[in-house]
């Protein structure tokens, strides 16, 4: 099947890559840049931090801006509530002009679970203000529909806790979100292995976002490329249609004998 006619659509933008990559936790900006290049991703997330006089160069941004076809998606990590997330989005827009924003609000630094109430409020305000809002959320099907209603460009439910590498711990809830959603569903957080990314695409998720799984790999650029292949394979498998699971045993008492008499029309 042709990849060109199978784009990931976010707002008015279409992307051929269904892998999104975070830029945190890499050993160096150089390794990060090589991972981005090796994976062919078109959307990378970046975070905001205070300018540090001891690191006065733009090591992170310079290589990313030099890459053709890479869009920056600022996140709002560090925000503890809706107000701070909205402020972070506005600051990020001054830095890169992007309308894409990943709304990420996790008030508890130990487990980094997203706050659904503050996330909803920030998403509502930012979407009404014209942003392409990509909210990072717990795998809650009702929350996903509520965010769709306020105009989010996608929802990004977690597969498992950030950085945990537990994979698709939320698989059954993700399936419900996928079945009900009218906007793209992007699994964000928790993945460790490319096979888990492939599984997410096979079950109907539209894309995945990984960071630690690549940054913490032995060879980050090679792992980034492996994730890109897995995502493409999972998507192709989804479109090709999986084989049926084994047949169920036939029950002993038939249910359709009442239909075997004369046909009543």
């Amino acid at each position: 099947m042709n990849q060109e006619d199978d784009a990931l659509v976010l707002g008015d933008h279409a992307y051929t890559s269904r892998l999104l990559l975070g830029t945190g936790k890499f050993a160096s900006a150089d390794v990060m840049a090589r991972a981005v290049a090796a994976s062919g991703v078109q959307i990378v997330t970046v975070a905001l931090r205070r300018f540090d006089r001891d690191r006065p160069d733009d090591a992170l941004l310079t290589p990313l801006l030099a890459m053709e076809g890479v869009t920056l998606m600022p996140n709002t990590s560090g925000a503890r509530n809706a107000e701070e997330a909205i402020q972070a989005a506005r600051i990020a827009r001054e830095l890169c002009g992007s309308r894409l924003v990943k709304v990420e609000i996790h008030p508890n630094p130990r487990h980094l679970m997203p706050d659904p109430i503050e996330t909803y409020e920030a998403a509502r305000v930012l979407a009404a203000d014209g942003w392409l809002v990509m909210p990072y959320i717990p795998p809650d099907p009702v929350l996903a529909k509520r965010l769709e209603e306020v105009g989010c460009a996608s929802v990004m439910p977690l597969g498992a806790a950030i950085g945990s590498g537990q994979g698709l711990a939320s698989a059954e809830l993700l399936k419900i979100i996928v079945r009900e959603a009218c906007i793209p569903v992007i699994v964000d957080a928790g993945l460790r292995a490319p096979s888990q990314a492939a599984a997410a695409l096979e079950m109907g998720c539209d894309a995945v976002l990984v960071n630690t799984a690549v940054a913490d790999a032995g060879d980050p650029p090679a792992m980034a490329a492996a994730f890109a292949q897995a995502v493409a394979a999972g998507r192709s498998a989804r479109r090709a249609g999986l084989m049926p699971v084994g047949q169920e045993a036939q029950a002993s008492s038939p249910l359709t004998t009442f239909l075997q008499g004369g046909e009543r029309v």
Binding site: E248, A251, P254, L255, T256
Partner: peptide, 10 residues
């Protein structure tokens, strides 16, 4: 038809 009925009942 019978297999469909079984599945529908389940």
């Amino acid at each position: 038809l019978e297999a469909m009925a079984q599945r529908a009942q389940a």
